[in-house]
């Protein structure tokens, strides 16, 4: 999913950098001190998750956790994904340096759409989390498909898109499990995602509340 150098036109790479840096600056404004540790932890989780390779149907794919990052961090997902991709580019050669901006735009878009799904889509939180997890990894693939079409590159990208649908389903299920765990163990992290009915007194008991 990380685009190497020499595949996309230079104009697209420059536009990617402009968009990525602009979005990172805009979404980092008014950062609160309390948000920083959470951003650091999720950046580490994304960094690790994207190194886990899953060979599916002869194609090498990997997880991203962009949906989970978007759900928990909202628009702060953009600087987090930017930082993670910089490290992946330089430490693991995942994607090219010139393509870094485009890679950030693709993957941060997944995080932002996941954040919007979590916040605005109707339905129970678990379902929203699953859909956000799926969209978080699959939207970047769709963007990649469009960029490759514009660049006139790639024949196997349709296979990659089909394979990533499986990865998206797995990641959706994983995101739903994480959110269900956090809802039970640390619901304050999901405060911005909970609807009034869901966060009504009694709807979200503290852990072991029934014991007390």
């Amino acid at each position: 999913m990380h685009v190497s150098d020499g595949i996309l036109p230079v104009e697209m790479s420059i536009a990617g950098y402009v968009l990525a840096i602009g979005a990172a600056v805009l979404t980092s404004r008014k950062l609160e001190t309390e948000e920083v540790p959470r951003m650091g932890l999720l950046a580490a989780a994304t960094f690790v998750a994207s190194l886990v390779n899953v060979p599916v149907a002869g194609v090498s794919v990997h997880f991203g956790l962009f949906g989970l990052v978007g759900l928990l961090l909202g628009m702060r997902a953009v600087p987090v994904i930017f930082a993670v991709l910089i490290l992946q580019t330089f430490l693991f050669q995942h994607g090219g340096f010139l393509s870094l901006g485009v890679n950030v735009v693709n993957m941060a878009s997944g995080g932002l759409v996941a954040a919007a799904i979590g916040r605005y889509l109707p339905g129970p939180l678990g379902l929203r989390a699953a859909f956000a997890g799926f969209a978080g990894i699959y939207l970047p693939v769709l963007l990649l498909l469009g960029e490759f079409q514009i660049a006139g590159y790639g024949r196997s990208i349709l296979l990659l898109a089909a394979v990533y649908a499986i990865v998206g389903a797995l990641e959706g299920a994983f995101t739903m499990m994480i959110v269900a765990f956090l809802r039970r163990a640390k619901p304050v992290l999901l405060h911005h995602l909970l609807r009034p009915r869901e966060s009504a007194p009694g709807a979200l008991p503290e852990p072991h509340a029934e014991v007390r």
């Binding site: 932890l41 950046a43 693991f92």
Partner: peptide, 17 residues
């Protein structure tokens, strides 16, 4: 490399915090 990346991320977050 993974350890290096995690160290950079946690270090940067710690410094910023």
């Amino acid at each position: 490399r993974l350890l290096l990346g995690l160290s950079i991320l946690f270090g940067a977050a710690g410094l910023l915090y």
